[in-house]
Nucleic acid binder design. Sequence first.
DNA 1: GCAGCTATTATTCAAGCGTATAATAATGCG
DNA 2: CGCATTATTATACGCTTGAATAATAGCTGC
Lengths: 207, 207
Amino acid sequence: MNRRSFHRAPEGERRQELIEATLDCISEFGLKGATVRQIAIRAGVTAGLVRHYFESKDQMVAEAYRAVIASLTEKASQVEGDPETRLRDFIAINLTEPVADSRSISLWAAFISQVRVDPVLSEIHREGYLAFRKTLQDLLTDFLAAKGKPADAETCRAFAIAINGLVDGLWVEGCLAGDLFREGELVAIAMSSVEALLGTSIGTAKQ
Amino acid sequence: MNRRSFHRAPEGERRQELIEATLDCISEFGLKGATVRQIAIRAGVTAGLVRHYFESKDQMVAEAYRAVIASLTEKASQVEGDPETRLRDFIAINLTEPVADSRSISLWAAFISQVRVDPVLSEIHREGYLAFRKTLQDLLTDFLAAKGKPADAETCRAFAIAINGLVDGLWVEGCLAGDLFREGELVAIAMSSVEALLGTSIGTAKQ
DNA sequence: GCAGCTATTATTCAAGCGTATAATAATGCG
DNA sequence: CGCATTATTATACGCTTGAATAATAGCTGC
């Protein structure tokens, strides 16, 4: 009765693999299909190892949620260039892969459905949401100022709420039924909608 | 060892109670917390009864999802009056209770997270989404025509996608963090955003 | 190249899951 | 009223779950 051979993963790596495997399982099988055993199989280890890296399965799932939020907000906050370019890129990034795909929304929805149940996840969500909206609001403040438009806090807040809603809503539509839209259609609709909302060109006419 | 007394529910009623109890449990405990036993307790019956009304738990859950979709779309499609009023009501209804509350989004998210996993739920979702967007697109067609604006199919399609995104996105924001907004703020933002998008007043100036 | 440390495997456990079955209480009908 | 029907309860079954434990394989420092 020989024991399986294995190798010891370097510092922190196994932990990351387990989190990634957790997300894979949640997106493929749903939260209730993401069992400790299934996750372990996906990560190529045995189930017992989970408890060596995490206090409980719930804690691992919470950390996995942090990773999702991070990946959804991270890319959008790395935009560079002048305010107009940054605004355009912000919109485009959020409505094209890899941010906009069915895996992302499966994960997002799975966690959102638990926000009411689990206060820990609720807190993680709120932080992520506020950070995302702040990024957008700062971006809009810069943009409006550059265009010589009123950019007071209250105005920018309202625009940020509206555009955040618009982008999120289109993101959901695209993730869930991308095949119902033509290539680039959602991004184009988002761009012209934002122009209408702000009453300003954002430089998409040339395309 | 006496058996519990009970009463026989009238035609179809118990079935409805079980579906309602299923939704209660999903919104409160999440999909994996909505066990047959928990649902039965909520409905005030014993677990075995579930299989008397449904072929399986999965089938009961699928029917519960149909009920959610119906309640989300039903109210919004019952708007009446002239096109302008109907558009305004459509927006307001979707962004105020009972459509916009934390229970609704918990349910919506729980099912959305399963769309990738379960083809049955996927089909139910797609039907619901298309019906909802069609309602909105028809409404916009009427509205634009009444305003003497171009109302060709392609234009209305794009507007319907954008406004659907906007309303859905604001709905999500409001459901998840209603306390971050002032009373009526989301509706007000939605109204002025739609006016900006369509380039037309929708009669909210008087407020 | 071996001794000690610990990351990993293997096994076990009680609890909870969805479902199946049999007994029984409530109802409707003659 | 008494009997047939069936909605409902009660109990049991096999399986999966997250977690606890003990054994061990792979590294690291000496």
